[in-house]
């Protein structure tokens, strides 16, 4: 029994840490993009706007929850919840430091892929249930985009699985104690990074919520806390993808084994690497314009999937020799 309690406590802590990160990453994003555009970002609430996420959270929580009269109510209610659950459940298999993951399962990578495919339902259903043209178009775009890029993402991780000989995320990190997989799998990393951006519907692949064409895409009819849930799902998804990239290509919790750096605990390295990826997300958002929809699909099917396939064959040949 104490073991069950301990597990529940661990789950509680991890979920709360993730939620806190999700709240503050929005602040971080506004600051980073603000400074990239020679602005200051949020400054009013608290010192340098540090209390802004809390104010935003309270505002979202107490706003009226408006539901369109012709919406499909049960589906409308449940759509954002699916997204949040899928995004947060991804953290169950991520090894955060030596020997710590909520569930150390052998099919870790497949579990993550399965959850990301469940998560896409939230956007499709949210778009459909709203009964609005903008939402519906956003939902349809998203379903096509997510299916296409999921293939590329899955295949880019095959190379990692082949090198480490396992789909268990802890084994994958341990297989990188000599060299990180970014060195031996640069093509796979590139494909994974692009697919991760597309999977989380971020700029330059944020067609499902393209503000200039679709108002807010699938989330147009959502307000109050349900909108907040979509928001949380997107940012938690970004953290999940960054964590997967860290674990599969950047050696997870492992840091350089020299001098005083060796004494820094693994979780610090793990978080630092994740923050690096999150910064990358914001960086490209401030830099790149949005793709056109046919360009996005062409890129996915004609470049990333063949690249990932070629990478699998190449890795197989190298392993054989």
């Amino acid at each position: 029994m104490p073991e069950t309690l301990w597990t529940v406590l661990k789950v509680f802590i991890v979920v709360n840490v993730v939620m806190l990160h999700v709240a503050y990453v929005v602040y971080f994003e506004r600051k980073v993009i603000g400074h990239m555009q020679a602005r200051l970002g949020p400054m009013r609430v608290g010192w340098h706007g540090l209390l802004q996420p809390i104010a935003d959270g309270i505002k979202l929580f107490f706003k009226e929850d408006i539901i369109p009269s012709s919406a499909d109510k049960p589906v409308f209610y449940i759509a954002p919840v699916i997204g949040v659950i899928a995004a947060i459940a991804s953290f169950a298999v991520i090894p955060m430091w030596e020997g710590f993951s909520l569930a150390n399962i052998n099919i870790g990578i497949l579990y993550l892929l399965a959850l990301s495919s469940i998560g896409s339902y939230s956007i499709i259903l949210g778009g459909w249930a709203s009964n609005s043209k903008y939402s519906f178009l956003g939902g349809l775009r998203s379903s096509a985009q997510v299916i296409s890029y999921e293939i590329a993402m899955g295949m880019s991780l095959v190379g990692v699985m082949m090198l480490s000989g396992s789909a268990n995320l802890t084994d994958i990190v341990n297989a990188q104690s000599q060299t990180w997989f970014i060195v031996s799998q640069p093509v796979a990393f590139f494909v994974f990074l692009m697919a991760a951006v597309a999977e989380t519907n971020r700029t330059p692949f944020d067609l499902p919520e393209a503000e200039t064409e679709l108002v807010a895409g699938y989330a147009t009819e959502y307000s109050g806390f349900r909108y907040g849930l979509f928001f949380m799902a997107e940012y938690a998804g970004m953290f999940a993808m960054s964590a997967v990239a860290t674990v599969c290509f950047f050696g997870g919790w492992k840091g350089p084994d020299v001098w005083f750096l060796a004494s820094i605990p693994g979780v610090v390295w793990f978080l630092l690497k994740i923050y690096g990826f999150i910064f990358f997300y914001f960086w490209i958002r401030a830099t790149l314009p949005r793709y056109r929809y046919d360009q996005l699909m062409g890129l996915g099917w004609k470049l990333f999937i063949p690249l990932a396939l070629a990478n699998i064959i190449f890795t197989g040949l190298i392993k054989l020799l």
């Binding site: 099919i107 497949l110 399965a114 990301s116 495919s117 469940i118 299916i147 999921e150």
Partner: peptide, 10 residues
């Protein structure tokens, strides 16, 4: 996992 990825996901 395959059941979810292939059937539910695709």
């Amino acid at each position: 996992a395959i059941q979810i990825i292939v059937y539910a996901g695709a």
